[in-house]
Amino acid sequence: MTALYLLDLVLVPAILLAACTAVGTRDRFAAVVSFIVYGLLLAIAWVRLGAVDVALAEAAIGAGLTGVLLLGALARMGRRADEAAAAGPPGRTLRLGAAALGAAVAAGIAAAVLALPEPAPQLSGAVAEALPALGLGNPVTGVLLAFRGYDTLLEAVVLLLALLGIWSLAPDPAWGGLPGLRHRARPEGVLAWLGRLLPPVGIVVGLYVFWVGADRPGGAFQAGTILAAVWILAVMSALVEPPAVRSLALRLALVAGPALFLAVGFAGLGLAGAFLGYPAAAGWAKPLILLVEAGLTLSIAATLALLVAGTPERAAG
């Protein structure tokens, strides 16, 4: 316990330092790299808080995909001098004002954290009580797919809406075309080598994380992220071309998960008497949940990969 607490005492300053570097450093590339380091440290913090599912999501999505997005955009916008640099450092008044505002908000939240009631109110007991009826071993999956199924369904729809927003930014000639610029990699280079070596491993790990999600940390979101990362790596190493966004197969993959979730939700109206309800008969809930999770894994992988790939910029050939 004491040794772990020492780890906390090292980890928290390291997280804050990485965050300060990400905000404060002049070099934009260093800022994004600090942000990725920050995300990975934060994932360790989530493990310390006993939230391994969240740690997986933070490492894969918060650090990994967000980092790739920011690095890609930075490469497009260039590191050359521009009006952001020409304007010089922000004025002293602005910096002091922003620091005062940030400190005040942080102090307010800190006071709220310290004033929390003891003992902590919680829903762990209620979840643990209802979980056996679903046949699941991972309470987080139970909450995501059953007890708060609405949240997850709407979240999947939010992902699709964000993707529609990104696609709608396409210039007219590229409408419905291929996302992003053409990637180039030396065929004998390290990137192409990794692009060949890692995908089989990544696909196995992704499917494993999906499958164990029912009973242990893992699930559709983490697995979908890993599969998306495999695809992004293959695209970046110029081994495959992204599909044109008007492709029917692609669009079916995008909506399969939410559509399946909705269908099971409506079936719940008849079978369980409630939208997104699962039948009470023993042994029915878990196969349905796994089915929904399988569809969600496919759709989340496709959606996340295309969110990172960005706006269509090339006409379909």
């Binding site: 997280i15 804050l16 965050a19 300060c20 990400a22 905000v23 404060g24 922003a98 620091a99 505002l101 940030g102 400190a103 908000v105 942080a106 102090a107 307010g108 939240i109 800190a110 954290v113």
Partner: peptide, 10 residues
């Protein structure tokens, strides 16, 4: 809480 403050400053 500190991270929210740092982010707000940035």
């Amino acid at each position: 809480a500190a991270l929210v403050g740092i982010g707000l400053y940035g």
